[in-house]
Design a protein around this nucleic acid. Structure first.
Lengths: 330, 330
DNA sequence: CTGAAAGCGCTTACAG
DNA sequence: CTGAAAGCGCTTACAG
């Protein structure tokens, strides 16, 4: 269609300098003389030059491409975090390659291969990589790998997140203190939800409570499962006084279904969620939840990435914590 | 850390062939002799070779990188479509560069520049590009540009979507037929919502109805705005019998708030949403909405992209339509 | 502060 | 079916 794209050479010729100088101007403007810089700027303007980053990547051995791997985005509790990360990365001049690994991470290996083939500068994961071979492969690749949301004992490289087990424990402590007696857990079938449930149960029973009942739901969790989970309460030998949901969506669906059945929340049945979505604070009643600061995770990820890029030693485990947010529903 | 990455040369040497042959094996295995192919495969295995796609892109003038530009992903009605597109693209061996253009597209130009610098094979947009200069720039770039969700009269290049105006008209027809008399619109401040509202109002008044009242809300729209919108009804001179919401989230929030106030939906107040999110079918009452088939949009986008890649002539406007989904709320 | 030249790791006519 | 060679468009020591 149009004539061929202008190259560095074209700009250099027009500005009366060498390609090397134009390259320097592009990458570190401060090293070229002001007058030269001005001529180059003008030449770029006139030619409509747009740097070819594929060539830049090849020559500089730095792609400025970051792979972000998430299970899904349609209904994901990570979306805020991912959005914040993409924003931050873009500000630094990076592009984000977003890969969806699918339920149970079944496309994880394929997408990791893609990222390696693209020679990305870093891989950011939100899902959990459990296969030892994949972990080993990532480790030996030599590229920066950041696991987020979770906080494994032995990260592949760097981890930025919090302990899901402790979050479960903390919630148990909080609810016991509020005087609840018979918790029922609605647990999405994911490693992290399972860990939170484990922490909750251990703490609850350690404090002398009866073993909580539970109901497992598929991931990704959504509103409809809350309704389902409410109806499943009928099968329980004894009615719980508090339902601990694995996500805010489940909590919301459960509240709606309970109310439709004429049950008052929290008077007759209390409910908690997880993730502290914006909706949790807007619901009627507002939903007691556990807040995870996605923006903070994004910032910490950027901090370690910048540290690495600068050749500095960086922490391998960054704990961003979590907070129980007490609201009306429990 | 590790030794340098193996290159095509290393594989070629080990397999006893030239680099050209290995390259051919990688890109079109069928043209190399079976026995040669077997040796190459083995050499790849032994060396742990991973193709460097930055070099491939530079040499072949094809990046296999597709830019997808969306306003946001935290609370987006496009997420299903985007997810389906990323899935399809990955299956074809492409990688997706996801760019967030932000509210009112204020980072659109920057992200388009990035995409052009990366020499992406195509740019897929979900937001609307209204600035003529940007449209002209994209047009003259010569790369494939697909606008999705909307269906402009004069696409930049290719458009896959539906007429928002017609969707509004259709909803007006549907509600009038159901016997509603006094519609009130809750309109997110976006071009497309505005078009739907325009279509609704025109049709409604054309059919002899009174001018609908309206309430505008910021984008991205969310649950909390539904509650707000409900409360704003009190300021109206006359109470509407049907509230037409610009998204399912708004509809859900409005229903929850109405119910909290003791109002029965739809008996005392009917409500419709837009987008037909999974939640709409799960809500109590289930929400009457307008369905947009995101997976279909993704498939059609892929179809035109493949057509282009094959050098075929492709349609420039693909109408995927929409459907009013009648449920309990209206 | 700037230039000449080699190199990054592939692909692809061209020739055989 | 395969190889030698040029080329894709940059960056970056090295030298001045």
């Amino acid at each position: 269609m149009a004539a061929r794209n202008p190259r560095l050479d074209d700009v250099a010729a027009l500005a009366g300098v060498s390609a090397a100088t134009v390259s320097r101007y592009l990458n570190s403007p401060e090293v070229v003389a002001a007058a030269t810089g001005a001529r180059i700027r003008e030449a770029i303007e006139q030619t409509g030059y747009v740097q070819n980053l594929a060539a830049t990547a090849l020559a500089s051995n730095r792609s400025r491409l970051i792979a972000v791997l998430v299970p899904d985005i349609a209904q994901s509790i990570f979306n805020d975090t991912v959005e914040a990360m993409i924003d931050e990365l873009a500000t630094d001049g990076n592009s984000v390659m977003l890969s969806l690994t699918g339920p149970d991470n079944h496309r994880l290996v394929r997408e990791i291969n893609m990222a390696l083939a693209r020679r990305v500068d870093a891989i950011i994961l939100t899902g959990i990589v459990s296969e030892p071979e994949t972990r080993a492969r990532l480790r030996s690749s030599g590229i920066t790998v950041v696991e987020t949301w979770g906080l494994p004992e032995d990260p592949i490289d760097i981890a930025v997140g919090f302990s899901h087990r402790e979050a479960g424990e903390e919630l148990a402590r909080f609810l016991r203190q509020r005087g609840y007696r018979r918790p029922h857990l609605v647990v999405p079938k994911s490693t992290r939800s399972e860990r939170r449930a484990g922490g909750f149960i251990a703490r609850w029973m350690h404090d002398g409570g009866p073993e909580p009942t539970r109901f497992d739901v598929n991931v990704p969790s959504h509103f409809g499962q809350g309704r389902l989970s409410y109806r499943a309460l009928a099968d329980l030998p004894e009615r719980p006084d508090i339902v601990v949901c694995g996500s805010d969506w489940i909590a919301q669906g459960l509240i709606v279904e309970a109310q439709a059945a004429g049950i008052r929340v929290p008077d007759q049945l209390a409910v908690t969620g997880f993730g502290n979505l914006r909706m949790a604070g807007d619901m009627r009643p507002t939903i007691t939840s556990v807040d995870v600061d996605g923006a903070r995770i994004a910032r910490e990820v950027m901090r370690v990435l910048r540290g690495r890029a600068a050749g500095a030693d960086v922490e391998t485990r960054v704990d961003v914590g979590f907070r129980v947010i007490a609201r009306e529903s429990a």
